Simulated scan of single mutants.
Amino acid sequence: MNHCSIVIDRSPERTWAELEAEYGAGIGFARAGYKLEALNEPAFPLGGYRLWREQNGGIDERICRITEREASAMRISMRADYLSPDARNMTVFTTFQALRAGATAEFHLDCHSTFDLDVGANASRDDVARAVVQLGDHFDRGIAQGVSRLKARIEAASAAE
């Protein structure tokens, strides 16, 4: 489980609109060089998209499905299935939410994932625990960097208006 929260110096409504565009429409991924293709799956009526880009000599490919979109709570939840061979069958469940913090927004990101853990067949419980902690730390750093970039972009775009 990973959690990150940060105050964004913009209104919660503005922050929510940016979250909807960034994750609900996938604009943030397109900005990062991914190609997007909208999904039309009856089992996921809130929508989603397939995204991919070449990266490090391979393809980073994911299917992102919106599982919750609650405008009144300024919250969107997604499931991302990572399809690349080196992704270890990873599935990530993430919730993004903008909460009112006075005149500003408090942005929350909560996620958990499942994946094939790369440890030897004879790994001890301690080996597995160490590998889980190391991956959790890796994910925490990546999430914190991504959230910091999102904060800077939202604040800069809003200030330019």
Rank of each mutant, 00 (worst) to 15 (best):
R31I: 09
R100P: 13
D110T: 14
A32G: 07
L51A: 12
D126F: 12
T91M: 06
R79F: 00
Y82C: 03
R69M: 02
F93D: 03
A80T: 14
A80I: 09
Y82M: 03
I76Q: 03
D81C: 01
A123W: 13
D118A: 14
D60K: 00
R31W: 06
M90G: 01
A103R: 14
F115Y: 15
I63S: 02
S72L: 11
I76D: 00
L99C: 10
G58N: 09
E68P: 00
G26C: 08
A101K: 13
R65W: 00
G33N: 06
I59N: 04
R53M: 07
Y23W: 11
T91P: 05
Y82F: 12
I76W: 03
I66H: 02
A105W: 10
F115A: 13
G24L: 05
P42L: 13
L39W: 03
G26N: 06
T91D: 05
M74P: 07
R50A: 10
E54N: 09
A105V: 06
V119D: 11
F44K: 07
D86Q: 11
T91L: 00
Y82Q: 02
D126K: 13
K35Q: 14
P85Y: 07
R125M: 13
G26L: 06
N40M: 11
R125V: 14
F96K: 05
C64N: 10
D110N: 15
A80G: 05
G57L: 04
V92R: 12
E106Y: 00
R53K: 13
N56G: 08
A98G: 08
A73E: 09
G26Q: 04
R75F: 03
F29H: 15
R100F: 00
P85F: 06
D81G: 02
I63Q: 02
L117Q: 10
I59F: 01
I27M: 11
A30Y: 07
L99M: 12
Q97I: 01
A38C: 03
P42H: 12
P45A: 05
R50T: 05
E37P: 12
L117D: 08
A105Q: 04
A87S: 08
T94K: 02
F96T: 04
A38P: 03
N40W: 09
I66K: 01
S84L: 02
R125W: 12
Q55K: 13
T94N: 04
R50P: 00
R125Q: 15
I63N: 03
P42N: 13
A105G: 05
P85R: 11
R62F: 02
R65V: 01
R79Y: 00
G57C: 05
N40Q: 14
D116Q: 13
E68S: 09
A121W: 11
D116F: 06
Y23H: 11
R65K: 10
G120R: 09
L109H: 15
T94C: 06
D126S: 14
A43C: 11
F93Y: 13
L46Q: 08
R62A: 13
E41C: 04
F107H: 10
S84T: 02
I66Y: 01
N56K: 09
G120E: 11
A71M: 07
P85K: 13
C111F: 15
R88Q: 10
P42Q: 14
R79D: 03
F93R: 06
F93H: 12
L39M: 06
C64T: 15
R69G: 01
